[in-house]
């Protein structure tokens, strides 16, 4: 009998409707993107960037290609060379390109980097109608790194890559130049 009434009056449907209507009075949980944005945790894996050392603004990257080897999608390409920098021989990356169209944002490159030169930022809005601009070159990566320095540092700390203090500074891959000879700058490597 009760069941009959339930069937006639669509009781279970009404109950459902009641629940639905009650949500008119619940605070919004949606955000009006792009006017509002979520706050992202430090761990967020966004656009990659290259970092410099804090103390003297020199590039951390030594062009060791380990990120290239670690990358599961093969989107990184590094070309390295040698240069003289204030009397020291330094290996550095002449080119550092990340093809963002291929990048899977797994963060393996950051984990691999032996000098913590790479980090991820919270930047995720770089859609464009020019696909070529999605190949981030060295300049662009440093630009992101300089601009989003705090986020990048936060990422490294959050992912146990670096302590709050800059521990990587102990070892800087700067080698003394051989003094017995007149320093002759290396000829430019053809790329």
């Amino acid at each position: 009998m009760k069941k009959f009434f339930h069937n006639v009056f669509f009781r279970e449907i009404l109950k459902g409707l009641k629940l639905t209507f009650s949500h008119y009075f619940v605070k919004d949980i949606t955000l009006q993107y792009p006017h509002e944005k979520t706050s992202l945790p430090d761990t967020f894996r966004g656009a990659l960037c290259l970092l410099r050392y804090d103390e003297n603004e020199t590039e951390r990257c030594v062009g060791c290609d380990l990120c290239e080897a670690a990358c599961p999608s093969g989107c990184i390409s590094v070309v390295s060379a040698e240069k003289l920098e204030s009397g020291d021989v330094v290996r550095y990356a002449t080119d550092f390109d990340i093809d963002i169209t291929k990048c899977v944002f797994c963060g393996f490159c950051v984990e691999a980097c032996p000098v913590n030169a790479l980090a991820m930022t919270k930047s995720y809005e770089y859609s464009t109608n020019n696909k070529r601009s999605l190949i981030f070159d060295k300049a662009k990566l440093y630009e992101i790194g300089d601009h989003r320095h705090v986020e990048a540092k936060g990422y490294l700390v959050a992912h146990d890559q670096e302590g709050e203090e800059e521990t990587v500074s102990e070892y800087r891959y700067r080698f003394p130049y051989y003094q017995k000879q007149e320093p002759v700058p290396e000829p430019e490597k053809s790329t």
Partner: peptide, 9 residues
């Protein structure tokens, strides 16, 4: 060929 490659590449 200094610094121009790594063996795995």
């Amino acid at each position: 060929s200094k610094y121009s490659y790594k063996p795995w590449q």
